[in-house]
Write a protein that binds this DNA or RNA. Structure first.
Lengths: 199, 199, 199, 199
DNA sequence: AATGAATGAGTTTTCATTCAT
DNA sequence: AATGAATGAAAACTCATTCAT
């Protein structure tokens, strides 16, 4: 009898998350999924639809979580502080949930057309929040940026990278990490550095 | 009879490159490879070892090419110009050979342990060149950087992203693109902007 | 709570009948059966034995119903009227219960040996009634038939076909249909046509 | 090394024919097919597309063969002789190729929509030949029929039945069989019996 | 009476690879 | 150099059935 605090379907989701992140969607078999969840491969199908639906569920929950948080953060009025908050959110999310974010970032084209459309739509909404934040900062003279589209992509790629290397055991703790990237971002957009951070 | 200027094994490599980039290593079958190369799947094995060796070959050639070029560039004495050249090389490579670089970046953990070690070693040598360039710039007072390790990763991720979106038909041509990223990089490391590029 | 006039096990039989007729025994899954009956697949097993027993039950009830009715009809003394009644019964049954008859006709070799023996025995008893009716008609000079065995098979196949096309909404109503086939049967056995039906 | 006179793909077709006729399409597994063809289930796929395509190929070849032959036969001018020839063709085909005809007759709704459309179209063309032959016979006073549509169905069902029981080892040889059914058919359509066949 | 959970064995189909020719 | 033939193992998924609750 499984633990009362972890439902079987959570275990399935967790196993899928871990394996998809580690070996990729196509590199992960149903049998491996079943093993990792402690089930037979037939039993797996009590807790999921298809393998692809499992992937979509992971992506959707990850993206909607990030999107919701970003929509809060974006309410801030000051362009510099707004960007700062976006960067910290993005970095924090990628540092603390690297498996989710890696799956979202790496497996989009494992999806079939219909599912891909949904996921890409979510991702686009998120990126639009960044684009607007940058546009607004430029319009209000807070940022000096050559190409906003390039800067947006550069910022996002740069911040997403933490999912590929950061661990809580390393030299930088989560606060350091966020502070560091916030500083890089301010430089990237040509914003004045904040008081105590002159390096 | 195939063209005299394109050997069959080049056609195989090209097909693999295209397909691995598009659908991933695990998402690409031997028969698709054979179709794309215009061969039967059995004939394919005259021009390659295993599917994995094909992947390794692609990665090795891509990485050694970049590494060789970087080793030239790194000879430059001036830290700012040296970084500038590294960025331009990296961006140019990712823009003009996006399939190679995407395969290298995305498929490393499709490799078995032995092959992975080789590829990771090459990648590490390349990243070490960047690390040294940044360290030297800091030591000589040309750059002001919080964490060099973070900056190195941020720079590389940011520049690699180009392979995911740039096309020659877009708003920025290759020169614009390199200039743009060079500017972003200088800001990131806290180096003075070059003469004509004040934004 | 289900209707008081339709028991759950009747609903199961009905669902099975419909699905077996539509998609065949092997083409129908237990879960489809359960869905159609409004039950879970586990609950299904409160109302049936195995899937095969369900099929046998359908076949048995269909065949015994037909057999009982035929045994009544066969009491008639006049060979022509007897055949007429047999044809009408067979046609009426196949027209009004096409699902039952199609399952009986089509799924016999989905059965395992034991079950098949039982069903085939019932079918043979039914066909023997026809055979006797024809033999008697020939013996008494009412019918003129080359091979009685061939005629029996021809008659039965011809009449059974009704289950594959007749609907109450078509050009012929049930009376027309029975009259039509009765006429064909009389011709087939070389019996004189009845008074008002000369065509 | 297989026989020089029977190709492997013929063996596959033969095995499929036999098994589909015996146990039905859904009742026949790929493994059984492979066993019967003397191949591994993977090797099977060198000689066929999907299991369904195998079924369609069987149906198509059977139906087009019958249709071609019928189109010849239908050229005859005399309605009685024409019907006679159609009946003999149909009976002969069902007697000598009972597996093909049973598969065609019984497995149509195992097909997916697209394939079914093709097969049904062929079958409809064949039945239209019969319908025309009957219509013409009625129009020219050679046949006296209540409902031509009913008679057509009755005739076809009756003749198709031979695929379910006739064997060359029984009481009737192939000539007897054709003669017998031709006689039944003439009676069915109210055509005068031919000279030597008064029964 | 009813069902979620579970599964071993099955389904059709594809996998990467080998080998005789 | 090229390929048809072949396959064991695996892919994702469904099967009919059981059982504890």
């Amino acid at each position: 009898m499984p633990s009362a605090t972890t439902s079987t379907s959570e275990r399935v989701q967790d196993a899928a998350l871990r394996l998809f992140a580690e070996r990729g969607y196509h590199g992960t078999g149903i049998r491996q999924l079943a093993d990792a969840a402690g089930l037979s491969s037939a039993s797996l199908y009590h807790y999921m639809g298809t393998k692809e639906e499992l992937l979509v569920a992971i992506m959707r929950s990850s993206l909607t979580g990030l999107l919701d948080a970003a929509e809060q953060v974006v309410q801030m009025d000051d362009p510099g502080e707004r960007l700062d908050a976006l960067v910290r959110l993005h970095v924090r999310t990628h540092a603390t949930a690297p498996e989710q974010t890696r799956v979202v970032d790496d497996e989009v084209n494992a999806l079939s057309a219909g599912a891909r459309a949904e996921v890409v739509a979510l991702r686009d909404r998120y990126e639009t929040l960044w684009q607007s934040a940058l546009d607004d900062g430029v319009a209000r003279g807070a940022f000096r940026i050559g190409s906003v589209a390039v800067a947006r992509r550069a910022l996002l790629e740069m911040c997403s990278g933490v999912a590929r290397w950061w661990t809580p055991d390393g030299e930088l703790d989560l606060d350091d990490l966020q502070r560091e990237y916030a500083g890089l971002a301010r430089r990237l957009v040509g914003a004045p550095l904040r008081h105590a951070e002159s390096w």
